[in-house]
């Protein structure tokens, strides 16, 4: 094979890899910096982690406030239980680990210790959905489905660095437990191009369009915006409604936008098709007699493969290229 035709060999995407595309604008460790800054004026904020401070950007907080940082070791049940204990003593703990471990390993401790008493714990977790190529051990594809079932637990899936920065003080201000999915490292910066401000519990229309309405959350909002730009060249007019708070849903905004006639509604999320934003929106719409053409863009009900993220995002349909093709297919 000649070097001219040789394609770059894509290798397994590491856990520390950024999900930013080549040339994309990014901001470093937005969660860690936002929390460290907030804690300057909020002495009740403490940081706790299960051996993943560097991989959740909590090390920035730890360096700024070493007396309020607690290393709990690779023990997620302990992390959640001890965070609950800290909250009982009046602190606002931000507890970090990977989304798989918070949900699948420590679920009962989140449920019973933190949520049953509605304690003020903020669970902030890296590697949501398909953001690592390490395979199912690290791919939290059903975390939202698991956590949506817990009464009183607020669930947030920010899109980019700006969303994360603004979400940190908002969830700290909120009284009660919060689960936030986290993008770490060099995080894409996208929403500064839009007239956008994060508000807990609010969905925001980022762009309007008459043919398709994306209802999206997390990094899939970024992909929806890219898809919308691409489809504009084909005279397909795409609206994007960003839903960073998955629970409780912004019912009024979603019903209003989905109720506008003539648009294909596509719910896009970095999560399995089961139990996430797609099913939440479908239930909401059906229960209110709103019945547009409806599609889900989400991960399949499968144990996903290991490999390079670009390959996997194409394979499982959450890259903007594949999304644009699917939309055109649905509109034909």
């Amino acid at each position: 094979m000649s070097t001219a035709t040789k394609k770059p060999r894509l290798t397994t995407s590491a856990m520390i890899a950024s999900i930013a595309g080549e040339g994309q604008r990014t901001k470093a460790a937005p969660f860690g910096h936002a929390l460290a800054k907030l804690a300057e004026t909020r002495p009740e904020i403490v940081g706790m982690t299960a051996d993943l401070s560097k991989y959740t950007d909590l090390h920035i907080f730890a360096q700024a406030h070493p007396d309020r940082f607690f290393q709990m070791g690779m023990a997620e049940q302990l992390l959640m239980g001890a965070a609950g204990g800290m909250a009982k003593e009046g602190f606002t703990p931000f507890a970090t680990t990977y989304a798989t471990f918070a949900s699948r390993r420590a679920f009962d401790f989140v449920h019973q210790v933190i949520c049953e008493e509605h304690l003020n714990v903020k669970i902030v977790c890296g590697l949501p959905g398909l953001t690592t190529g390490y395979g199912p051990s690290h791919q939290a594809t059903e975390d939202v489905a698991m956590f949506r079932g817990i009464p009183g637990l607020t669930i947030v899936d920010p899109c980019d660095a700006l969303d994360i920065e603004q979400a940190v003080p908002a969830i700290a201000e909120h009284k009660g437990p919060v689960y936030m999915r986290l993008l770490r490292g060099n995080v894409p910066l996208v929403l500064d191009e839009y007239d956008y401000k994060f508000e807990l519990g609010k969905a925001k229309l980022l762009r309007d369009g008459k043919d398709v309405l994306f209802i999206s959350t997390g990094l899939m909002t970024m992909r929806a915006l890219e898809t919308a730009k691409a489809l504009a060249a084909d005279q397909i007019d795409v609206a994007v409604l960003h839903v960073p708070t998955i629970k409780p849903l912004d019912v009024a905004t979603i019903l209003r936008e989905a109720g506008r006639s003539g648009r294909l509604v596509v719910v896009a999320e970095n999560h399995t098709v089961i139990g996430g934003l797609g099913e939440a929106v479908a239930t909401l719409l059906l229960s209110n007699g709103v019945t547009p053409s409806f599609r889900q863009m989400a991960l399949p009900d499968e144990f996903l493969a290991a490999g390079a993220l670009p390959t996997l995002h194409d394979r499982y349909g959450i890259s903007s290229a594949v999304m644009a093709t699917r939309i055109k297919g649905w509109l034909d």
Partner: peptide, 23 residues
């Protein structure tokens, strides 16, 4: 605490003890 799901008291106690010490 809300007990019953066994094995949760001591992890909570660790968090409370850390919190008390910090205060």
């Amino acid at each position: 605490m809300s007990g019953g799901s066994l094995g949760q008291g001591l992890v909570i106690a660790v968090g409370m003890a850390l919190g008390l010490r910090l205060k």
